[in-house]
Each structure stands twice: as structure tokens, then as C-alpha cells.
């Protein structure tokens, strides 16, 4: 390590500024290192810019060539030049709603239990379970949705076919449960103990304290968790691509028992059929149009979620 050189100096002379300054070599190295790290940090800005440029460029290419009435037809069939936005947006919404119906009670219930009820020892055992669940790749959940959720839940209780938006939605819901639970739990954990003690001091029981004191105090973080969950559900791809069917295209539907197409699944369908798609010239650029739609929807939700999280941080 480069030490500071200490030279003997004749008595009577005092230190000057130049004595304290770094030697040229060391100073230059500092500058180089700093610039290298700065460049590394700037890469993320570059990637963001590239994403936006890519999406805009592709969307412009698509919109300038497509007949606009094709964006509002009966269904999403890119091979037949039918690009009904409603179909894929509605499909996405159905999956997101089903997913939140599953993930909200499971995620928030788990979060409240872990934050308020579980002993420290229980927490040590229970949290890793959620972490393992969070680590299951979405393609695995897609297969599970197809071979287990679909026959055992959608087919037997809701009279749906093998492929359905509902089965995909339940799969996505399970997939985002750990995320919802962990963000919500963080929010409740951040509520100061003094609030709980004050509530107990007034004679409130655990349940009243949890519902009437802790929950309202952490509500921003809980809302943030739910919004983040929706954002993730909208962007989730593989579960829908495997379990929702509608690979060749889909008619407009808002029935979770039907096959359907979401924005993300539409994109994978376009890509896996890439050999055939080359003939129809607009099918490929439509990928970027759907991608742009997806990007801005999730961006909006993420920004909203962050606002809410920041509100929690400010208050405590």
C-alpha cells in the first residue's frame, strides 16, 4: 500500500501545501479509478435509454405501417393481421386480478403473521419458506399451473378447459405472494414498538392492535406491496405462456375460464413462431408495440409503489 512518505526536513522550515498534496502518480490513479467506476454506474442510464429508444423505434415502425382499424378488431391474431389491443390488455387484466385475489390474502396474511405474531424462532423457520417459494423460476410455476392447478382447481371447480387464464392467474398469484409478503412485512416491521405498547396500555388486545394500530400505520407500505405485486403480475410471462393457451392468437375475452392471451404471452408466441412470422411483415414490429405498452404500464405502477414506500420511510 502506498504510504505517505515522511522526509526529514531541516529545522525551521514549515510544511507547505505541496507537501500535503498527493504525488502525481497516486493522484492520477485516483482519477482513473474514479472515472472507471463512474462509467460503470452510467451503464444503467445507457441501458435505460437504449430500452426506451428501442421501444419507441419499433412502435413507430409498427404504427406508421399498420392500418389503425386493425388495432380495434375481434381478437389478437398477428398472423392474420389482427392486432386488437383490447384483447391482450383485457387478458393481462384478468390474469392480474386473479393473481391479486390469490396473492393479497396469502401475502398480507403471511406478512401480518410474521411481523406481529410469530416468535423469533418461528420467524427463523418460516421466512426461508417464503424465500424458497420466491426462488422458484416462473417457468416451473407455469408447468405446475398446467399440470396441477388447471386440473385440480380450474377444471374441477370452475369447469374450465386445460388451458385457461384463471389457471395462469392463480400460478402468477402464488409466484408474487412472497414479494407481497416481504414488502408488506418490512412496512409493518418498521412501525415503532411504542405504538403497539400504547395500544396495549389502553387495554387493546393483539388483534385490535394489529388491525387498528399497526395496519393503518403501515398502510402506505402495504399499498406499495400490492401495487408492486400488480406490476409483477402484469410483466409475468412464462406462467401465462405455458398455462393460458391461446398460442396462435385469441378472441377478446374477460372470462378467466377461457383461453386467452396477455401482452407478455403474445410476445413469446410471436417470438417462438419466428420462422412463420417472417412472412407477415407487421407481426414482428408489433412485438415492440406491445413491449412499449407493457414497459410504460409497469413503469407507472413501480413509480407509484415507490412513492408509497417513501411515505412510510418519512413518517418513522
Amino acid at each position: 500500500m502506498a504510504g505517505v512518505s515522511i522526509e526529514a526536513r531541516p529545522a525551521g522550515t514549515s510544511l507547505s501545501v505541496s507537501d500535503l498534496r498527493l504525488k502525481m502518480g497516486r493522484r492520477r490513479r485516483e482519477g482513473v479509478v474514479r472515472r472507471v467506476f463512474f462509467a460503470a454506474a452510467l451503464v444503467s442510464v445507457l441501458i435505460n435509454v437504449l430500452i426506451v429508444v428501442t421501444l419507441f423505434d419499433g412502435t413507430w415502425d409498427f404504427l406508421s405501417r399498420v392500418e389503425l382499424r386493425l388495432l380495434w378488431t375481434d381478437g389478437w391474431f398477428p398472423r392474420r393481421d389482427m392486432y386488437d389491443i383490447r384483447t391482450i390488455v383485457a387478458g393481462t387484466m384478468v390474469v392480474a386480478v386473479v393473481a391479486m385475489v390469490v396473492a393479497t390474502p396469502l401475502g398480507l396474511g403471511a406478512a401480518v403473521y410474521l411481523a406481529e405474531y410469530a416468535s423469533r424462532r418461528a420467524r427463523r423457520w418460516l421466512k426461508p419458506i417464503l424465500e424458497v417459494l420466491a426462488g422458484i423460476p416462473s417457468v416451473v410455476m407455469g408447468f405446475f399451473a398446467l399440470i396441477w392447478i388447471s386440473p385440480n382447481i380450474m377444471q374441477s371447480f370452475f369447469d374450465a378447459g386445460l388451458f385457461s387464464l384463471g389457471a395462469a392467474g392463480i400460478g402468477v398469484g402464488i409466484l408474487i405472494t412472497p414479494l407481497v409478503a416481504s414488502v408488506a412485512e418490512d412496512a409493518m416491521f418498521a412501525v415503532p414498538g411504542s405504538l403497539r405498547e400504547a395500544s396495549y396500555g389502553l387495554g387493546a388486545r393483539k388483534r385490535a392492535t394489529t388491525i387498528r394500530v399497526v395496519f393503518p400505520a403501515a398502510v402506505s407500505g402495504i399499498v406499495a406491496a400490492l401495487i408492486l405485486g400488480i406490476s409483477r403480475a402484469i410483466g409475468e410471462t412464462l406462467v401465462v405462456a405455458i398455462a393460458a393457451g391461446g398460442t396462435g392468437g385469441s378472441l377478446f375475452t374477460i372470462d378467466p375460464r377461457q383461453q386467452g392471451q396477455t401482452m407478455t404471452a403474445a410476445m413469446t408466441a410471436l417470438a417462438t413462431g419466428s420462422d412463420q412470422v417472417k412472412g407477415a411483415t407487421l407481426a414482428f414490429p408489433s412485438l415492440f408495440f406491445v413491449g412499449a405498452l407493457l414497459f410504460f404500464m409497469t413503469l407507472g405502477l413501480n413509480v407509484m409503489s415507490e412513492r408509497f414506500v417513501r411515505r412510510v420511510r418519512k413518517s418513522y
Binding site: S44, V45, I47, N48, I51, T54, L55, G58, S231, I234, G235, E236, T237, T264, M267, T268, A271, L287, F288, G291, L294, F295, T298, L299, N302, E306
Partner: peptide, 15 residues
């Protein structure tokens, strides 16, 4: 930018 990138759906990276 970093936080935004972390929230971009994976499939958009494919594009």
C-alpha cells in the same frame, strides 16, 4: 435509472 431497471419486466430485456 437503476431502480427503474430493476422493475422492467424480463421480456422487455428480450426486446
Amino acid at each position: 435509472n437503476i431502480r427503474n431497471l430493476a422493475g422492467v419486466p424480463a421480456i422487455v430485456y428480450g426486446l
